[in-house]
């Protein structure tokens, strides 16, 4: 059955009145693309999944196809390449064991990264994730914000940030940790499963004893002063960015502007005296930068003006 011929249009579908208007508007509003990088990201993700699957199968299945003419030729043909391949494989294996892989996401973008075990991390703009080949622990380092969908396994999965470690076995959760922020904290929000949050600079034993265990829907924060469950926080806010929204909850204005810079890939500056002003802004759906700046400036009685490549925020004189 082909969908190419003949397709109904709102006009020839027999609809009338309001139904016809709705059908026309629905067709006009239909999306025809996920964005400019969708094709490349999909192919990249597929290639990563394919490489992981190949790695799991090992190289034993590879076949060397040559032309055989005599026993000597067979020996020459087999031994030399075999030795060379073995040497290369050894070098690659040894090198691979210590090689750290890093993915940096440019501002203004989000990127989905498939990890060696099939777990996935969706990173926000400006974030960075790094890992070594997984062995007895599936460990990644995160700087920035990412939503993790971790494949269930008996081997623990750990996300380390600048001041905390999140330990899980299989679950979906969000981690935000910007080490350069004025209010540098690690926030964890759990959607499904269970996670344990530990302070990173404490010894493992002590960290475990003071760890917080989260249940679905809970958020927790790791600060220099310790770990804390955020009872009043809504997980929808922490996950708002996944559906194009944004939640800046009681953070310094400078940190809020950093978040907007990463989201929109622009330059945002503010008078030095304003950098620590507590700022809150929440939207569950996508909004333009200027709409957001309008709202923030209105709430804080500030104003903004265009500068080269962005905006400057100043007092409302």
């Amino acid at each position: 059955m082909s969908e190419q011929t003949p397709q109904p249009t709102p006009e020839n579908s027999g609809l009338t009145g309001l139904d016809l208007l709705i059908a026309r508007a629905a067709r006009e509003g239909a999306a025809d693309s996920f964005g400019p990088y969708f094709v490349e990201r999909t192919v990249e993700r597929m290639s990563a999944a394919r490489s992981a699957a190949r790695g799991a199968r090992g190289s034993a299945a590879r076949v060397w196809r040559g032309s055989w003419s005599s026993p000597q030729a067979v020996l020459r043909g087999l031994l030399r390449p075999a030795i060379a391949l073995a040497a290369i494989a050894l070098l690659l294996t040894v090198g691979d064991r210590f090689r750290t892989r890093t993915v940096d996401v440019p501002p203004g973008a989000t990127q989905l990264v498939t990890l060696p075990d099939g777990s996935e991390a969706t990173l926000t703009g400006g974030s960075s994730i790094a890992w070594r080949p997984f062995s007895d622990v599936r460990a990644v380092d995160l700087e920035g914000e990412a939503f993790f969908a971790v494949v269930s396994d008996s081997i623990p999965f750990e996300v380390s940030t600048f001041n905390a470690r999140v330990v899980v076995t299989g679950t979906r959760f969000n981690v935000r940790a910007w080490p350069g922020a004025l209010q540098a904290e690690t926030w964890v929000a759990l959607e499904e499963g269970g996670v344990r949050l530990e302070q990173l600079d404490a010894p493992r034993q002590a960290a475990r004893s003071s760890a917080l265990t989260l249940t679905p829907g809970q958020s927790a924060v790791a600060r220099n002063s310790g770990l804390e469950l955020a009872a009043a926080r809504r997980i929808e806010d922490d996950l708002a960015w996944r559906s194009g929204g944004l939640a800046l909850l009681d953070i310094p204005l400078a940190d809020a502007l950093d978040a907007l810079e990463r989201r929109f890939d622009v330059t945002l500056t503010a008078d030095a005296a304003l950098r620590h002003r507590p700022t809150s802004f929440v939207t569950p759906h996508a909004m333009d930068l200027e709409e957001i700046l309008d709202a923030i400036c209105f709430a804080l009685d500030l104003q903004y003006r265009p500068i080269l490549g962005g905006f400057h925020i100043e007092s409302n004189q």
């Binding site: 693309s33 996920f34 597929m46 989905l112 996944r242 559906s243």
Partner: peptide, 28 residues
């Protein structure tokens, strides 16, 4: 086929990274 998948997924759940995530998963 991006337009086929995008119109379906975005029509169902709206725009955003989650929609793109699902779009990629469809192809994978």
């Amino acid at each position: 086929y991006e337009d086929v998948v995008a119109a379906t997924v975005i029509g169902m759940i709206g725009r955003g990274p989650e929609a793109e995530d699902i779009g990629q998963e469809v192809f994978i």
